[in-house]
């Protein structure tokens, strides 16, 4: 019988039992898929990712990992816990949360050391990652001395070094310059080609097309407003506008004022070029 990596059935979650964050969510994520979760601020994206990583647990409904129910009691089993943490890697939205060690090197090797990976394996993975991400010069530095782009790369390295099959990323490109964004997206695509499942939460619609086979749109009511193929979702400006993912943009070309929905997508510049012609 085929088991998806994650299967969520009617999942509800609230903070302090009073502030709802997820209201009846159903999701199936298959192995090797690229999945994006998009939605406005406070729509429950981060909460969902924390649930998938077993950091918080649903109030009601079911979260299954390869057909096995994911609950607090499952993590009491040390063997399961280590196996899960080796398979699922999570890159936090705020890299300052993830980089808690005094040096970059200690931060990167923290995960594999906790999970009992052999030291020579850790060393060879570290060498490979610092080369791929171009962060060799940062190893002996303190995370405080890094730029936001460098912090994100180090946070990514600290997760990738574990060698997870499933990579969960919470807004991996927020606040990054275009070049660093490109670098991270290329890396995620490579990881997906090598067989990893990539789950990304974002409201940067630029990257959604590249990092998604399936897109889930979360609404203000903390439910899935719609899900489907990335192209279908990105072309549905009405859906995106209704969920605060695009806005009405007005600007002037010579003497003419243009008003149209603005989704911060690549085709936006193309439209303007066509208008000029």
């Amino acid at each position: 019988m085929y088991n998806p990596v994650f299967s969520l059935k009617n999942v509800w979650f609230s903070y302090l039992g009073r502030f709802p964050a997820l209201s009846g969510v159903d999701i199936d994520i298959k192995s090797g898929q690229k999945v994006s979760i998009i939605g406005a601020n406070g729509s429950g994206k981060s909460t969902l990712l924390h649930l998938l990583d077993g950091l918080i647990f649903a109030d009601s409904g079911e979260v299954n990992f390869f057909g096995m129910k994911l609950g607090e009691e499952s993590f009491n089993d040390n063997e399961f816990s280590i196996d899960f943490r080796r398979k699922v890697g999570f890159v936090f939205q705020n890299p300052d949360v993830q980089l808690f060690c005094p040096t970059v090197k200690e931060d990167i090797v923290f995960g594999p050391l906790q999970l009992g990976l052999p030291k020579n394996q850790i060393q060879s993975r570290l060498e490979k990652l610092v080369f791929t991400l171009g962060i060799r010069d940062l190893l002996e530095r303190s995370p405080n001395q890094l730029s936001i782009g460098e912090k994100r790369k180090v946070a990514l390295a600290s997760t990738l070094i574990i060698g997870p099959d499933i990579l969960i990323l919470d807004e991996p490109t927020a606040g990054l310059d275009p070049l660093t964004t490109r670098h991270i997206i290329d890396l995620l695509i490579d990881e997906n080609i090598s067989g990893k499942t990539i789950i990304t939460s974002t409201h940067d619609l630029h990257i959604v097309g590249e990092v998604s086979d399936i897109v889930y749109v979360f609404g203000a009511d903390k439910k899935i407003a719609r899900f489907g193929d990335a192209d279908d979702i990105l072309n549905d400006t009405h859906l995106l506008a209704a969920n605060n993912l695009v806005h009405i943009h007005s600007h002037r070309h010579k003497d003419k004022i243009h008003i149209h929905p603005h989704a911060h997508l690549d085709h936006h510049t193309e439209e303007h070029q066509n208008e000029k012609r």
């Binding site: 943490r85 949360v97 808690f100």
Partner: peptide, 19 residues
Amino acid sequence: EEVYKAMLSRGYSGEPMVL
């Protein structure tokens, strides 16, 4: 709270191992 979650996520189980 968040740092503790980040530690859990990378396999911390109460006994830290360092380089």
